[in-house]
C-alpha cells in the first residue's frame, strides 16, 4: 500500500508526475511504513481563534507507523496549528485526533501529559532555556517520565540521567558544550541541543515545526541530515512542517500540502516534481 492511498482528504489532488527524484533519504535503510498501525489519525480537525476565520477547516489525515510526512503550505496555511492541535498545545475547535491509539481530546491532564511524553517535538525557534547550561536543557527531556527536581537542573539530576544526557549530546556532536550556556550557542547548535532534548525524552514519534527555518542553508542541511539519521536509526514516525520543497522531497515519504486550513494535496514523494509542489505557494 502506498502512502498516497492512505490519504483520506477528499479534496486532495494528485500531482502530475514529473521527472522522478531519487528516493527520500529516510526511506533507505528502514522498514516500509506499516499501514496497519496508524499512529496519527486526524479526522475533520477544525480550529478557529476567537470566532475568527478557520485556521484548520476539516483536516483529515492518517500517518502509519514509520512514515515520514512533510506538511507544506504558505504562512498561515495551518501547518503549525495542525501539529499543536495534535498535542493539544492548542485546543482544537472540532474534529478528532487519535495519537498512538489515544483519543487526544478525551484525555485528562495526567493522561495527556503521558501521551505528550511519547512525542518528541522540535520547534522552529529551538525553545531552549537560554540562561541554563546545555546539559540542563537536555536533562529537561527526562521530565517526560520523571517529576521533581531531578530533571530540572543537571546538578540535581541522578548520575544515570546525567550520563544519558551526555550520550544524547554526543549523538548530536555537542558533548564538549555540555556546561556552556544555551544562549551562547549558534542557531544550528541550539537546534541540535533541542534534538538531543527530544532524544532524552525517548520518544515513539516525532513532530518538527519548521526545524531549520531560522538557520542558514548549510546549518539547515546539517541539522536536517542529523535529524533524518536519528529518525531512521530509531525507526520513528515523523511529521514535520517545512517551506523547503527540497527538504520535503528528500526527507519525507509523503507530502501533504495545506492551503487555507484544508488539505490541498497529499502525495507520495517518490516521482513527484518539485516544480509542481511549488504551485502550492501560488
Amino acid at each position: 500500500m502506498t502512502a498516497v492511498t492512505l490519504a483520506r482528504a477528499t479534496d486532495a489532488k494528485q500531482l502530475p508526475q514529473g521527472e522522478p527524484l531519487p528516493p527520500p533519504i529516510l526511506a533507505g535503510g528502514r522498514a516500509a511504513p506499516d499501514a496497519a498501525l496508524v499512529e496519527l489519525d486526524v479526522t475533520g480537525l477544525c480550529k478557529a481563534y476567537h470566532g475568527g476565520p478557520a485556521v484548520l477547516d476539516g483536516v483529515s489525515l492518517q500517518v502509519p507507523r514509520g512514515q515520514s510526512v512533510a506538511l507544506i503550505g504558505s504562512n498561515g496555511a495551518g501547518k503549525s496549528t495542525l501539529l499543536r492541535c495534535c498535542l493539544r498545545l492548542i485546543e482544537p475547535s472540532g474534529g478528532e485526533v487519535t495519537l498512538l491509539g489515544e483519543k487526544v481530546r478525551a484525555l485528562d491532564k495526567a493522561r495527556l501529559r503521558r501521551l505528550r511524553a511519547e512525542i518528541g517535538f522540535v520547534f522552529q525557534r529551538h525553545n531552549l532555556v537560554g540562561q541554563l547550561s546545555v546539559l540542563s536543557n537536555v536533562i529537561h527531556g527526562a521530565q517526560s517520565r520523571q517529576a521533581g527536581p531531578g530533571a530540572w537542573f543537571h546538578f540535581l539530576a541522578s548520575r544515570a540521567a546525567r550520563e544519558e544526557a551526555m550520550h544524547c549530546l554526543e549523538r548530536v556532536g555537542l558533548a564538549e558544550f555540555a556546561l556552556r550556556r544555551a544562549d551562547q550557542l549558534s542557531g544550528g547548535q541550539s537546534q541540535r541541543v533541542a534534538i538531543a532534548r527530544t532524544l532524552m525524552q525517548r520518544p515513539r514519534m516525532m513532530f518538527a515545526d519548521e526545524p531549520v527555518a531560522s538557520l542558514d542553508p548549510n546549518a539547515g542541511e546539517e541539522v536536517m541530515n542529523l535529524f533524518a539519521e536519528l529518525i531512521r536509526e530509531k525507526g520513528l514516525t515523523l511529521v514535520f512542517t517545512s517551506h523547503h520543497i527540497n527538504h520535503a522531497l528528500r526527507y519525507a515519504d509523503r507530502v501533504v500540502a495545506l492551503r487555507n486550513g484544508r488539505i490541498e494535496l497529499d502525495v507520495a514523494t517518490a516521482g513527484v516534481d518539485a516544480a509542481a509542489l511549488r504551485g502550492i505557494y501560488d
Binding site: L115, A117, E118, R125, H126, N127, Q143, A151
Partner: peptide, 28 residues
C-alpha cells in the same frame, strides 16, 4: 519567553517542572 515553556509542556512536563526549569531561570 513562552517558547521554552511550550517545549516543556509539549514533552509532558508538569506545571512545577515548567515553572522551575523554564520560567524561574528565564526570570532570574
Amino acid at each position: 519567553d513562552k517558547g521554552p515553556q511550550e517545549a516543556l509542556t509539549a514533552l509532558g512536563a508538569r506545571r512545577s517542572g515548567v515553572v522551575f526549569s523554564a520560567v524561574l531561570p528565564a526570570a532570574m
